[in-house]
C-alpha cells in the first residue's frame, strides 16, 4: 500500500529510521551473522584458534543422541502446552460468551496470569508441588502417588507443562473472546430458530468460524512454548532430571554457556533460526488469509 501524499526530503527520514536500523544492525544482524559464521568453524578448547570445518558442526549436532532427545522433548512439551492452553482458553471463552452478568469480572480475574513472568509462574507451581514444602505434593503422596518431580522426569515435564500452559490460558482466552464477538449474531440466531442447541451451535457454527483464530493461536502458542518458556525451565527444573525437560532453547544456552561449545551452540542457533523462519512464514501466510476473512 502506498500513500499518494508524501513529505519531501531525504536526510530527515534517514535520520528518523537511523536509531532502529542502528540497534537492529548491532544487536540482531551482526550476532546472527556471527552465529552463521562460527557454526562453520571449530574452536580448540582454549579458544586460541579455530579451523574451518564446513557443515561438520551441523552433522555432529543432528546426529548426536542428546540433540535428538532434546528435539523430542521440545515436541512433547510444545504440543502439550499448546493443546492444554488452547483447550482451556476456548472452554472459558465459550462459557464467558454465554453469560451476560459478571462478564467483565470474569475477564479481569482470568487475564492476570499474563502479567506474571514465565519464571515466576514456574516458581508458583513449584511452591505447590515441591516435595519439600508443597501442600499439593503432600496431598498427592497421601493419596498414594509417588510424587517427586526432582527425580521423576515425566513428573517434572508435567509440572513445567502445567506452569507454561497456566500462563498462556489468559492470552488464548482473550483472543477467543474477540473471535467469538466477531461472529455475526444473526448466524447464531438463525441456527437457534432452526432448533440447534448451544452445543450444536458451538460445534457447527462457532468453532468452524473460529478456525482462523485457532490457527493463529496455534502458531503463537508453539512459538511461546519454544522460546518464552526458557525462564520456566531454567527456574524450575534446570533441564533435569536427567535432561528430561531439556528443550532446544535450553540446550543452546546450556551448551554455549555451561559447556562452552561455540561451534555446536552456534549450529543449534542456526537450526533454531530456521525453525523460527518457518513458523513466521506460516503465520504470515495465515495473516494474509485472515484479511480476506474479516
Amino acid at each position: 500500500m502506498h500513500r499518494r501524499v508524501l513529505f519531501p526530503g531525504t536526510l530527515l527520514p534517514l535520520l528518523l529510521v537511523a536509531p532502529q536500523i542502528a540497534i537492529t544492525s548491532v544487536f540482531f544482524f551482526w550476532p546472527a551473522y556471527r552465529a552463521l559464521e562460527s557454526s562453520l568453524y571449530r574452536e580448540d578448547p582454549f579458544g586460541l584458534s579455530s579451523t574451518f570445518v564446513g557443515l561438520e558442526n551441523f552433522r555432529e549436532v543432528l546426529s548426536s543422541p542428546g540433540y535428538l532427545h532434546s528435539l523430542g522433548v521440545t515436541a512433547v512439551f510444545s504440543l502439550s502446552v499448546a493443546l492444554l492452553a488452547l483447550t482451556a482458553g476456548l472452554v472459558f471463552a465459550a462459557m464467558a460468551d454465554r453469560v451476560l452478568r459478571g462478564r467483565t469480572v470474569y475477564r479481569t480475574l482470568l487475564i492476570w496470569p499474563y502479567a506474571v513472568a514465565p519464571a515466576l509462574a514456574g516458581m508458583l507451581w513449584l511452591f505447590l508441588f515441591s516435595p519439600a514444602m508443597g501442600t499439593l505434593a503432600i496431598w498427592l503422596r497421601r493419596a498414594g502417588v509417588p510424587w517427586d518431580p526432582l527425580l521423576n522426569g515425566d513428573q517434572a515435564m508435567l509440572l513445567v507443562v502445567v506452569a507454561a500452559s497456566w500462563k498462556q490460558v489468559s492470552y488464548n482466552f482473550l483472543f477467543f473472546v474477540a473471535g467469538m464477538q466477531a461472529i455475526p449474531r444473526s448466524l447464531i440466531e438463525a441456527a437457534a430458530i432452526d432448533g440447534a442447541g448451544p452445543a450444536r451451535r458451538f460445534f457447527t457454527i462457532i468453532f468452524p468460524l473460529l478456525s482462523p483464530t485457532t490457527f493463529f493461536l496455534l502458531v503463537v502458542n508453539t512459538v511461546y512454548a519454544f522460546f518464552d518458556t526458557f525462564g520456566i525451565i531454567h527456574a524450575v527444573t534446570g533441564g533435569g532430571p536427567a535432561r528430561a525437560t531439556e528443550t532446544l532453547v535450553y540446550k543452546v544456552y546450556n551448551d554455549g554457556f555451561v559447556g562452552l561449545d561455540l561451534g555446536g551452540s552456534s549450529a543449534q542457533s542456526v537450526i533454531l533460526m530456521a525453525i523460527v523462519v518457518a513458523l513466521t512464514v506460516i503465520q504470515f501466510r495465515y495473516v494474509e488469509r485472515k484479511v480476506h476473512y474479516a
Binding site: W30, P31, R34, S269, T280
Partner: peptide, 16 residues
C-alpha cells in the same frame, strides 16, 4: 528482526 529472537542467537549476542 521478527525472525531473530534473542533465544536463537544467545552466544554471539553475548559476545557483542
Amino acid at each position: 528482526t521478527l525472525m531473530l529472537p534473542v533465544e536463537v542467537r544467545i552466544l554471539p549476542t553475548y559476545k557483542v
